[in-house]
Design a protein around this nucleic acid. Structure first.
Lengths: 107, 107
DNA sequence: TTAATATATCGTAATATTGCAATATAACAA
DNA sequence: TTGTTATATTGCAATATTACGATATATTAA
């Protein structure tokens, strides 16, 4: 036990769960929201924006990157992280479809 | 350590993280999608729809209920679970606002 | 009442996540 | 080259999650 029974669910359901898991920590929500306030994709020092040590922030960034929610490009010494619009659009479309279907059901 | 530094983040960020965590397991995504296919709110036997034992399903339902994503009403021997449109609308609005802001930034 | 059915809770083992100090890597500046 | 800066990786302790057998609860039927 302790293991998620991944194989028992559809690929889509697992993919969605991975995306949601990437957002399931306040630090990662904070990273998303910070990247949203930055004007361009060029941005450094996310570490200074968060109340966590540098290795911890790095780990959270890695998780967001693995899930495809952010992208990271090496820009000299700094790394330029930015949001991935395609993935965020997926989220929007998923919930749009759900709320639309819910309206039709009219509980 | 091992504890999430909840107190270091805003209330909104923590609330969002809790909502996303509730969806971060394929079984819970499957429950949402099953409830979406059921015609009315009256529904039983979610257990039979999932490849998990009854206590496990009950636990997942509890997590979704705690997060406010589903509602449960006692209906005799059975329990009627249904989606909470308000919470799902929150998700939609959150991602709508993000994708809108991303378009304006035009990376 | 007793039996059957549906769902919840408890207890616990296996696994995953979180956070950070220590260390490593990689690029630039002097 | 050496030093500085920015980010990543490793290792590990504390905590959380997942799954399920056993058991409890609660409603209906007989």
């Amino acid at each position: 036990m302790g293991t998620s029974k991944t194989a028992s669910f559809s690929e889509k359901q697992n993919e969605l769960a991975i995306l949601f898991k990437a957002l399931s920590h306040p630090a990662r929500v904070a990273i998303i929201e910070y990247l949203l306030t930055v004007d361009t994709c060029i941005c450094g020092d996310i570490v200074n924006e968060l109340p966590l040590a540098q290795p911890t922030v790095s780990q959270h960034l890695k998780e967001l990157k693995n899930a495809g929610i952010i992208k990271g490009n090496i820009e000299g010494t700094a790394i330029c992280y930015c949001l991935n619009p395609e993935t965020l659009k997926k989220f929007e479309e998923y919930f749009f479809a759900i709320t639309k279907k819910l309206k039709e059901k009219c509980c």
